[in-house]
Nucleic acid binder design. Structure first.
Lengths: 137, 137
DNA sequence: ATCAATTTGTGCGTATGTATA
DNA sequence: CTATACATACGCACAAATTGA
């Protein structure tokens, strides 16, 4: 697969799909580095902004993390601990605000789970570290 | 509040915070349009890229939606329907892939809930439309 | 059915700052 | 200290979508 600048799908979306394939196919394993922006720019003959938007897209999906001055890496999702949803509780999923994200030290593209207990108490959990369960009856 | 180009916090983050305040304060109500990129550029004396990155940030948080050729709007979150998490089920939150997002017609910055039933069956729910509940015991 | 105005999308070039190796 | 790499920010240009005259 290559990139077609004349396609109606944006160059950066095409590149994101290519990189996504290389990640999901296992060619790029969790923890491994993506090619640098400069390399991607040269190899695909596209502009830097397209490269950065593609990586930004993957970042917002939680697929990669970018370390400034170092590079972008395939994100290794942490182990999920099981958390039991208490009886009478309700939970919604949403994206954290910027402050919230920094406070909880969440990577980009990671949602939070907002659990409201029966007493109205609220708990916010990192969406990539927990699996909410309800025990069998 | 104004924008300080000399601050160590990026201009686009400062603008995003300003806009976030204007949304949360109710000055910009759900459904109303944000100022155009050109207006924000002029009013704050910053470049278009900073404006676009600020809006992109708010979009990735699910706060605004952008319609090409029209403008950016404060996102009106839909009503949440209550969905009961079945006994023996588990749920994780994550961001949808690009294809998934388009297929489910989700706005940017909206996570999905992946519910795994006790039989291993999987259901993916739009994260902005459901509230998962566990009935009181 | 056109046309023009507005607005966002894409792309390129350039410069400077900051973090890492 | 230097080189590399990503981050921020500005400018300009043109494409594409929407709206309304």
């Amino acid at each position: 697969m290559t990139i077609d600048p004349r396609s109606h799908t944006p160059v950066y979306v095409q590149l994101a799909e290519l990189l996504r394939q290389r990640i999901e196919s296992g060619e790029l394993t969790p923890g491994s580095a993506l090619p640098s922006e400069a390399r991607l720019t040269q190899e695909y003959g596209i502009g830097r902004e397209a490269v950065r938007m593609a990586i930004s897209l993957l970042r917002s999906e939680g697929l990669v993390v970018t370390v400034r001055g170092h590079g972008s890496y395939v994100r290794a999702a942490p182990e999920r601990r099981r958390v039991e949803l208490p009886p009478g509780a309700a939970v919604v999923a949403r994206m954290p605000s910027g402050n919230e994200r920094r406070a909880m030290q969440l990577d980009e593209g990671v949602p939070v789970l907002e659990v409201r207990g029966p007493e109205g108490d609220v708990e916010v959990l990192p969406g990539d570290e927990v699996e909410l369960t309800r025990p069998p009856s």
